[in-house]
Design a binder for these strands. Structure first.
Lengths: 129, 129
DNA sequence: TATTATTTTAGACTTAGTCTAAATATAGGT
DNA sequence: ACCTATATTTAGACTAAGTCTAAAATAATA
């Protein structure tokens, strides 16, 4: 990880919002949240910062097939599960079996570089309704 | 699967394009392809048809995090791998181990309904370049 | 201080897709 | 065949999410 990350005030504020949120916010939600904290950055700045932070490895971009990306301040290897009903996103730490990835390498001839698992289901809260 | 699927000429033409393509086309690619075959449908019709066919279970919509959905005429259970370099998408039939899904159920408290694995890598062709 | 590089800004623009109201086509009943 | 009801298609306006650009502001370096 590069130690020369240039954390401008804008990038820091955005990073903080992501880390303090516990629900994997979208860019729109981040902007909303910044506004509540008294910040109002240009759209370009927000998207640019999100790319920068992602590139720097400080956050992860989650593409769950919703039309907008979500951002995650937890950069440990993990996957996600999303509730079909309320939309909340939770972390999943049980990792996929490594053999499976090797199988795929053999089956497809691809050199597998990364995998992302998107789970959908019903969260505990929504189960009781 | 409902046997009363209303396959209008437009829907049939779109379905055929998807089935005859071997590279999981996007809506834009489908429209392009239709044009080459002499069809020119309204955008609304194409998107509406894609939803209808997906809903009817005749095709699958793939959201690989690219900004536009792809469509797949192969409705057998399988996953996908995409080449980071050329973008082509191939099928993966080696299935994930079922125990893994049960683990997640336990770990998260969610009732898991579906899972999608998006693999990224380098395809055989791009490896030789 | 002067120069250069980096970042932010506002706002125009793009892409992918949705929505709407009118026009067409299809199906069922008489 | 004719009337009515329902389903589908069409054109084009509209939306959401994000990118791009050129100018202004900051920061870093000589």
């Amino acid at each position: 990880m590069d130690s020369k990350v240039n954390l401008t005030p804008q990038r820091k504020a955005i990073y903080d919002v992501i880390c303090e949120s516990n629900n994997h916010p979208t860019a729109a939600e981040i902007i909303e949240n910044l506004k509540e904290n008294g910040f109002r950055f240009a759209y370009g700045t927000v998207y640019n910062s999100l790319h920068y932070l992602t590139e720097a490895g400080l956050i992860h971009e989650l593409k769950l097939g919703e039309g907008s990306s979500r951002y995650d301040g937890n950069i440990d290897e993990h996957q996600h599960i999303q509730c079909e009903i309320c939309g909340r996103v939770d972390e999943v730490f049980t990792e996929i079996n490594g053999e499976w990835l090797e199988e795929i390498d053999k089956e497809t001839g691809y050199t597998v570089k990364s995998h992302q698992v998107i789970l959908k289901g019903v969260c505990p809260t929504c189960q009781n309704q």
